[in-house]
Simulated assay, not measured.
Amino acid sequence: MTSETKVQLDKSTPESEWKKILSTEQYQILRQKGTEPAGSGEYNKFKGEGEYNCAGCGTPLYTSETKFDSGCGWPAFYAEIPGAVERHVDNAFGMRRVEITCAKCGGHLGHVFEGEKFPTPTDQRHCVNSRSIKYQPKE
């Protein structure tokens, strides 16, 4: 997303507009519920203080304080910024999972898993595609 973008980027944004704004890979993940290959994302092992915003609409989703290394091959967070992420039951591929999407634009982020016994305050792992987020360093 560029600062020159004049379109309101939210759930009402037409797919034709998303195709102009997002890279092919971002569109496939954010708009078509795709998944990047494990270990291929730039934020999997990334460390830095700041926020992780939606790569589609720019909404802040996660902070670096909640990021942890789960060893799963994708960036992992144990909690979202309150109100930033929505959850939906996903029964694709013959299994029940919980999909997470950006609350503002509906972009697919990944899935959230519970009860895996990671040493985090929430016992949750938000397994997020790197291409669905954009890191913003703390100023």
Rank of each mutant, 00 (worst) to 15 (best):
P75N: 12
S130K: 13
K117I: 01
C127A: 07
D90C: 10
P137I: 08
V128F: 05
P75V: 08
V112L: 07
S130E: 08
L109T: 05
G106L: 07
M95C: 04
Y135Q: 02
E99P: 07
F113R: 10
A76Q: 04
Y135D: 01
K104H: 05
E80D: 14
G110S: 07
G106I: 07
Y135W: 11
V128G: 03
G107R: 01
G106W: 01
K117R: 14
Q124N: 14
F118M: 09
S132M: 09
C105I: 06
G110R: 02
V98L: 06
E80N: 13
R96F: 01
G115W: 10
G94P: 01
S130G: 12
Y78R: 00
H126F: 15
V128S: 03
C105V: 12
I81A: 11
P137Q: 02
C102R: 03
G115F: 06
G107E: 04
N129L: 10
T120A: 05
K117A: 13
G83K: 14
H111T: 12
N129S: 09
V98R: 00
T101H: 08
G115P: 06
H126N: 14
P82A: 15
H88M: 06
A92S: 15
M95Q: 09
P82D: 14
I81F: 05
R97V: 12
P137Y: 00
G110W: 01
I100R: 00
N129T: 06
E80R: 00
F118Y: 15
P75S: 13
E116N: 10
